[in-house]
Design a protein around this nucleic acid. Structure first.
Lengths: 259, 259
DNA sequence: ATAAAGTATCACGCCACGTCAGAGTCAAGG
DNA sequence: CCTTGACTCTGACGTGGCGTGATACTTTAT
């Protein structure tokens, strides 16, 4: 049995906090003496630990009470929602920091930020940047794809799909040679060609795909199913493939300039 | 000259806020009629703009008053200090999110997080690890997803992937209800939540994914393997899901405009 | 002239306690 | 036994930035 002070020092909270938790029925003392003193047993200590844990997660007290009092409470959903809230706050903090930075720079005279910008463009700027990235990755390809793909017959579609999966199987067969090996890179040319059944991918889209193969859950799951090491392997291999294409393109450009 | 309502709609704040700012001498009306009405001229409008700017930076009102009332105020130093405070708060949020994630995974039963860790997991040891993760996350933002994904343990990754595939299985089980049915839409919330383990998807990205699930060869193959009708079903369902979210968002925006 | 919209001033509520104030309780030392 | 000092109780007010009424007045539109 602990008194308020003992529990407060034990748990690192103030006595007032324990009074308050008693008041709002979040943590009742295990027993109360005839003198009115509060006494807490080990079970109460444990409950306090739990309370403090959820409090540390920035969950408000009524919700903590709901969680602890109802064991059937959908904890995971609640936590996921909470996670989402945290995420939102963090994003907001980030834009704030950027604005503060800009303001500092503005005030130091290093950046010319018009007053309009200063008072107007909080979230718009970043928002647009995200949109551009999304559009880059998925916009042009997806629009084109639907038409092309639907223009094929069922048999053609099946054949194309099978050809596609064969590419990945061949890739797995050559994984030991390393992602930048000529064999693998040659197979990637087939992969590249294969994509053209659906749309004409830009280099950026290719690279985006390479990253998505590793980073995006559904892609990752697909390729992990084929071989557990395939996603990172594909990412590296495609990165190299794109690099080479880019270099070749650059050299061609420089060549024509020289002419 | 503007009345309270005019200024409030103009600046996007409530009338009560203007009353309050008057009360604490942060923004006094330029003149007060014999009827007691508050009137604001353009100078007051400008000051309000400034107030809102600093408020957006999460600076408390007394300090804003100090900044605006004292032209010799060392703004840059104040902003730098403020920036530091924001940074600290963001780091804290970062650790919170990690802990929430761990707790979710723990509750999914896939990870053995000892109770010590669970209730005491704010030790310096972990603290440092979190700092590293934060650096990872906020450094080069392009690779954010991969780093986050790789920051999970093998078991965590497995748990997440399994949770993901469960989503699709549940979707197939409810396909007969139609893509816009509440059951399906509820499952899509889990899908949305699940993506957040990897990155924060914008609505555009969600829609792009929905289309890609049907149109992109690799996605299509994946989901066709689960169920032959799943890709177009998913596309329709996600389109509706995004539509609803977009509508809700729009209504919220219009709602705040009305105030 | 009347209804609707706008305006004013109190004044309480919020959240998670901090911080007194005043009074009672307990263990230890002289 | 008495004092001292540490501890306990309840009750009440303060915090920040307003939201949300309640109630009464004024202006505007029909």
């Amino acid at each position: 049995m602990h008194t308020v002070k003992q529990l407060s020092t034990l748990a690192g909270v103030s006595v007032r906090t324990l009074h308050y938790y008693d008041e709002i029925d979040l943590l009742k003392p295990s027993s109360v003496g005839r003198n009115g003193y509060r006494y807490y047993d080990d079970q109460a200590v444990f409950r306090l630990q739990q309370i403090l844990f959820f409090r540390e997660l920035d969950i408000d007290l009524p919700q903590i009470k709901a969680i602890l009092d109802n064991p059937d409470f959908d904890l995971v959903t609640a936590l996921q929602q909470h996670r989402q809230a945290l995420q939102t706050r963090m994003e907001r903090l980030q834009t704030l920091m950027q604005t503060v930075d800009n303001t500092i720079l503005h005030h130091l005279g290093e950046v010319n930020m018009s007053k309009q910008q200063l008072f107007k463009g909080f979230s718009e700027e970043q928002q647009k940047q995200y949109e551009v990235e999304a559009e880059k990755l998925w916009g042009p390809s997806v629009r084109e794809t639907a038409r092309l793909w639907n223009s094929y017959s069922r048999e053609q579609q099946a054949a194309i799909m099978q050809e596609g999966s064969q590419v990945y199987l061949d890739l797995v067969a050559h994984m030991s040679q390393g992602p930048t090996s000529p064999e693998v890179q040659t197979i990637l040319e087939r992969w590249h060609q294969h994509l053209r059944y659906f749309y004409e991918p830009t280099l950026e889209v290719l690279q985006g795909l390479g990253n998505a193969y590793n980073d995006h859950p559904d892609f990752n799951a697909t390729f992990t199913a084929i071989h557990p090491d395939l996603p990172p392997f594909l990412q590296k291999a495609i990165l190299h493939y794109v690099d080479v294409l880019e270099t070749e393109w650059l050299e061609r450009e420089l060549g024509t300039l020289k002419e």
